[in-house]
Amino acid sequence: MKISFLIVCICVLTIASGYGQEKVYYNQTEFGAMFGQSEDNWNGESEPRTSFSMITFHGVRFAKHHVVGVSVGLDHYPSIDILPFALGWRGFHGPKDKAQLIGGFDIGAGSTVLTEKTETEWGKSWYEGGVMVSPSIGAYFPGKKQKTAFTIILAYKLQEFSLFNGSFDQVNPRPFPSSGLPPGYNSLTETAYSLQSLVLRVGLSF
């Protein structure tokens, strides 16, 4: 696994070196807001949801108009803070010294490491992260020396995560074999969230 990753890195850097005039390392850091509709409440109505989002993408330019890399970020949803991390691609369209169309695609997972587990004598609750997918499109405005650029991005973001509420088995200390219930639990409620957002971000690239 490590060897194949190394080979991929070498290939990417070799190809990238073919574009000697281009800078290999690419960074894009943005802040913005996510807009969505919260889940239906008890009377079936949903409410607008607005929350903060940031992302920093680090990649290598392996072709003139293409960059691949990794992204990490912070998504502050009303109910939870999630750290998304993903593999990503950025593609550019347009003349180098002018405003360009920039497209992107990130796929990875969101971590709930910032949340706290709560445990009492009777039960335990915790979050588990899930899949994150985010295609994006936007504009890339290079600076005068073309070393830095201003970006404005519109993205769709799907973030999944789950909240688990388990109650301990107070009566029966033996686990139930081959079931979806972890040992020591009498019941487990999983609330699976699939949050869809439209994300508007601005930032800098260098």
Binding site: Y156, S194, Q196
Partner: peptide, 20 residues
């Protein structure tokens, strides 16, 4: 377009209970 997309971004929540 942005307003339409934002409105169509509806969260989905499903709950499952596993119990003995």
């Amino acid at each position: 377009m942005i307003s339409f997309l934002a409105v169509s971004c509806q969260d989905e929540v499903t709950t499952s209970h596993t119990y003995r």
